[in-house]
């Protein structure tokens, strides 16, 4: 895979930073960050709380100004071209924000009217913002599952509903790039799944998603590329599959561990040193391929329930990288 594959025509990256640094007084919140988010990516921006994720997201959006370094979003430098870049970006930063005394629709109407006329993007119809506003608002509310929310003021919403409203606001203009900071906060598991499906669908239609989160599982379940931030530094940035690469070991699950161990010529189970015994019925084998292991077990009459090349979990990779 060459680095240019998967990029939008023109070969631009969706988000590219070089040496991005932000200092607050003596504290360095973000330290020479070189992000490379390609068009079409589902990029997971992973890091513990306080690692500088939100500051980075704010810098990408022109809310916070970098101490040094360059930012390019959708091929244009930020914050200089904010006026041309941001209309094509949908964002959810540090929780949703809405006027509590207004309904969801009224909030979206005000927000949409505040911005410049609709320019482009997959969902925009180019009719001009006023004519299509009602339709776009309904579509966005439909997408996030708030279509039947009625005229209640936002004050009466649950946290999850507010989060959905924030997402609807980000989707309003059919952005080419979605920058989402902890988008599933306050959502129940079903809501999380719904939102994930929505984002997958949008991504399939060409929207790049930049998802910042401290939840490994969320990133692992959704993203194709991952950047790992630790104390302001980018410690890894790679495809999810690469980060979760095979360990070279084989994991087999058998119905009789003792028999399996014998068949494979392993020492018997020792409570002091677990050795290859992992969990109830799992054996982890060094230097034995899946094919070899299954063959030997089947020959010995041990029933194999599962046999896979062992992969690191993302958690393991991240813990390895950040400690």
């Amino acid at each position: 895979m060459t680095p240019d594959e998967g990029r939008a025509p023109g070969g631009e990256g969706a988000v590219v930073t070089r040496g991005l640094t932000k200092r607050y007084g003596r504290v360095t919140a973000v330290d020479s960050l070189d992000l490379d988010v390609r068009a079409g990516d589902r990029y997971g921006f992973l890091g513990p709380n306080g690692s500088g994720k939100t500051t980075t997201v704010r810098m990408l959006l022109g809310l916070v100004y970098a101490t040094s370094g360059d930012i390019e979003v959708l091929g244009r430098s930020m914050p200089r071209h904010a006026g041309r870049v941001l209309p094509e970006v949908g964002a959810l930063v540090e929780g949703p924000g809405a006027y509590p005394h207004l309904s969801a629709r009224a909030n979206l109407r005000l927000l949409d009217a505040a911005g410049p006329p609709v320019a482009g993007g997959p969902l925009a119809d180019g009719v001009g913002s006023r004519g299509s506003r009602r339709r776009r608002i309904e579509a966005a509310l439909e997408q996030v599952g708030l279509a039947d929310v009625g005229r209640r003021p936002v004050r009466a919403y649950s946290l999850g509903m507010r989060q959905r409203l924030g997402l609807a606001a980000a989707l309003l203009r059919g952005p080419r790039l979605l920058v989402l900071d902890e988008p599933t906060n306050g959502l129940d598991p079903r809501g999380i799944a719904e939102i994930r499906d929505l984002l997958l669908d949008l991504n399939a239609r060409g929207t790049t998603v930049f998802l910042s989160s401290h939840l490994l599982a969320e990133v692992e379940a959704f993203c194709t590329r991952v950047g790992v931030l630790d104390r302001g530094r980018l410690v890894a940035q790679d495809d999810l599959d690469t980060l979760r690469g095979p360990t070279g070991r084989t994991r087999v699950r058998v119905d009789d561990v003792a028999a399996g161990a014998r068949a494979l010529g392993l020492p018997p189970r020792d409570t002091e040193r677990p050795g290859p015994f992992a969990g109830e019925g799992d054996l982890v084998l060094d230097g034995t391929s899946v094919a070899d292991a299954t063959e030997r077990l089947v020959r010995a009459g041990v029933r194999v329930l599962e046999a896979v090349p062992e992969r690191r979990t993302l958690e393991e990779s991240v813990l390895e990288l950040t400690t």
Partner: peptide
């Protein structure tokens, strides 16, 4: 304070 300033600015509003 209401958290709406950032959304106005990224809408974007100059």
């Amino acid at each position: 304070a209401a958290g709406t300033l950032r959304y106005l600015l990224v809408r974007p509003v100059g």
